[in-house]
Design a protein around this nucleic acid. Sequence first.
RNA 1: GCUCAAGUGGCGGAAUUGGUAGACGCGCUGGAUUCAAAAUCCAGUUCUUUCGGGAGUGUGGGUUCGAUUCCCACCUUGAGUACCA
Length: 1022
Amino acid sequence: MQYHFNEIEAKWQKYWAENKTFQASNNSDKPKYYVLDMFPYPSGAGLHVGHPLGYIASDIYARYKRHKGFNVLHPQGYDSFGLPAEQYAIQTGQHPALTTEENIKTYRRQLDQIGFSFDWSREVRTSDPSYYKWTQWIFIQLFESWYNKDSNKAETIEILISKFSSEGNANVNAVCDDNIEDFTAEQWNSFSSKKQQDILLQYRLTYLAETEVNWCPALGTVLANDEIVNGVSERGGHPVVRKKMTQWSMRISAYAERLLQGLDTIDWTDSLKESQRNWIGKSVGASVTFNVIASGTKQSVGNEKEYHSEQSEESHKIDVFTTRPDTIFGVSFMTLAPEHELVSKIATPEQKAEVEAYIQATAKRSERDRMADVKTISGVFTGAYAEHPFTKEPIPIWIGDYVLAGYGTGAVMSVPCGDQRDYDFAKHFNIPIPNIFEGVDISEEAHADKDNTVIANSDFLNGMNYKKATKRAIYELEQLGQGEGKTNYRLRDAVFSRQRYWGEPFPVYYVNGKPQMIDKAHLPIRLPEVEKYLPTETGEPPLGRADVWAWDTKNNKVVSNTLCHSEQSEESHNGIYPLELNTMPGWAGSSWYFFRYMDAHNDQDFASEEALKYWDNVDLYIGGSEHATGHLLYSRFWVKFMRDRGFVNVEEPFKKLINQGMILGTSAFVYSVLNFECLSKSENNTEIINLLSKLIIVPTTIFNDKKLIKKVFINQSEFNTSKKIQEIISNIDDFEINMNVNSIHADVSLVNSSNELSISDFKNWRKDFCDAIFIDENGEMIEGDNGVYKVGREVEKMSKSKYNVVNPDSICEQYGADSLRLYEMFLGPLEQYKPWNTSGITGVHGFLKKLWKLYVGENGLNVNDAEPTKDNLKTLHKTIKKVEEDIENFSFNTSVSTFMIAVNELTTQKCTSKEVLEPLLILLSPYAPHIAEELYSQFGHNESISTEPFPKFDASHLVESSKNYPISFNGKMRFTLELPLDMSKEDIEAAVMVHEKTKEQLQGREPKKVIVVPGKIVNIVG
RNA sequence: GCUCAAGUGGCGGAAUUGGUAGACGCGCUGGAUUCAAAAUCCAGUUCUUUCGGGAGUGUGGGUUCGAUUCCCACCUUGAGUACCA
């Protein structure tokens, strides 16, 4: 009986589906375990072999946990809203829902054929109205919440309103917009509802505000910071510009500290935590207020009139944030961002022109230019001065684009002796660099080291170290009322509006321009139909094209726009108002989906309390590291919010997280000759002769071989009748010939495992190469089937455009899902990036065949009740031990070799004992579940192997009576010696010393020392 | 620039508390089987060698009886971040 993997795999996939083998129950006496994969975006291209890597790992773990007696939740779903489907819809006019549905079908078929133990009864899709109903609901909860810094959590907005109406906002300690005016309870109660709504919007956790956003004209939408890479869009690489727009934002900054602290409580990789820490970017320091000296005061004190006119103007203050308040006496100038609002107000008439020119020049430069060009120092003096808080000396105020408007206050106190950027700026503009550090030379560069710092020339700070001086400086600033200790975060509030069609609609309508939430009872608000998926002619988002997109507040339903009037009078509206035209970003649906799996069909709640309590949070999460500062940060934010409001019980969503590395493609290249460069040796001139009347393809081996290049040149010249070339050929030795080539990707499916290209298939594939001439490694033309062309290889990211994509379908067909699963694990450590090489799969496939042969002979099962031998048991138990340790350590690659060793050994031992071969199947079942099920059923079992208890390791089978000791001399192993394990140290030493080879090694020398570690090693020194 | 990973045969990689470096697989070489091929099986495969050995885990140093493993410095590659005050 042969190993017919296709039949076996189809049979068991059907069995699992029909018997709902992997359906998890929300009621169980077993301990629970929740294994989650980052759900996929269903793209049109389907899965390639890189995608399942993480799923296979999590599936192995999930199956292992079932064997270990856990009730395992291992769900899967689709992050099915997103840009590609919409781009495709724009191109083809097809509704994204249709293409998404098609893509999901492909994904499902591909996933099923790999044999995953997913509980498909809990599948979720973010684009499904029954799902996004709850995304909308969470949005409403965020809108109805504010962040109370006193209780350090989000609370409902009702609490805030009652505070306002009873005591005003003076004592409210909230995370909110800057510059909120103080008001009393009486004032609050007398405010119009419109004004009250405006004020509340400044406190809500999601709020509407005019913000500078990253606008991508090519995509017609706003992008979040994490969606921009190197100043261009992550998808498509389109330019991004700054633009002011009214947008929904999420007050994630309220959670900055908790997001940072929470990292210490979760089991994630250090590099991932580090990226989140950097992204949050906490810096501790102080805010300092500098008073601007009225411009008349300094320069024209004598001029009474001008002095008075300046005095009548309002006085200005500049707030700065600094991490080094200890260096405040080293300030020799201040720098404002060119966009700073004070710039135009304080610039003196003499400097005004120059300042304005500079501002304009900076505005023209794109964000990308500014980022790319860090070296050029530029700036302009404003003419204005600020007063030093302690010395009262005037400090010149400059503007410079090295100060960013978006960070801190957009202004810095410049301490050139302690900050390299300030130092460079001061040097460039000849601004004094006072030294306030004891015993430090600052003639070459700034001294930015906090640890080795003693402050000097700084009045009351003299002689103090960084820590002491900082504390004292803050204290003194507080005394003056010109500063306080402050912590700043780089983390910005997240823009939540997208000008796209294929996303969650907001449950929001506008009355007189003020946002109103639709009641939970009327959710979901479904995406309206539009006839095109592009922005409108007036620049509104695609939803602006919908005809039925207004909210009827009387009947609580979406109605035709024609019923909605824009007139101001309340009566004319008839209770019908326009709906929000933006949609939510990709991360909305993915920030909470892990809770939905717990109770996927609940239509009363996003998940029931019991389900949330039972499954708690994700025990193991596997996915790519590219989500470090997007999905993984936003999810943590939403979970913390939901916890604050009592909707869930957990503070962190993912207890343990593993990043699987990417599987890279091995691209194949052919090299077409661009030209032959002929250099005359005698005449000392260079000429490039274009010989290409025909396309010539050469292999890599020829590139640097002068002889072969000449040979190719001569062979090809028969296609060219040019006199010049005839002349060169006749005097070929007078010319030095070089060759320039162009690398062209060849589809990897046209190349066999020995890197040989099928030339006829290649010509068929690239019609423009149908007349190309291929040259072999000897410089000879390849004609017909004679000769082979070897492609060049390079490891690159797997992608359609590089023609290096390997499809799991064909692998499953040729070798089976079990082979694919084993091979993906066998490639190397899960977290590591590694290239895919299809030829290696024969190794694991051969292993499965060998395994099959161990169990099944020509006439059926080869297994009996024979008493296992000592060797059989030893092999089994060392395998149990290793595999269990490996799975616990997520070292799946090493278990595959362990299985190979076990099967090799048992085959050699001719083992037929059921007592050994049955437990081995359970060990293997998480990795290669189909073959394990099949053989297990042939043993006579009627139940699936999937919940059989994991075999127990018994150390007694591994006990040895002797050890093959490595005998080393000065740490180098020279020979081995078999000795009983119960031998004493002294006896071992004696036995080694009398040995032939020892004497040979020592050559008469007396050893200085003999180290004997019983059971391990003997080392002779001397 | 800063932060974090990682450097071991022709290739993917193994060596879990410092104790026989190169497990396992690919590839390659030779052989068996076959009309032939595929498949299968057997043997070999770090380098070097005067066939006794000798060297060897990016480089240089250190700790140790003993270092791929620990410490210091450097080099290279990859990823993230980028004027964050």
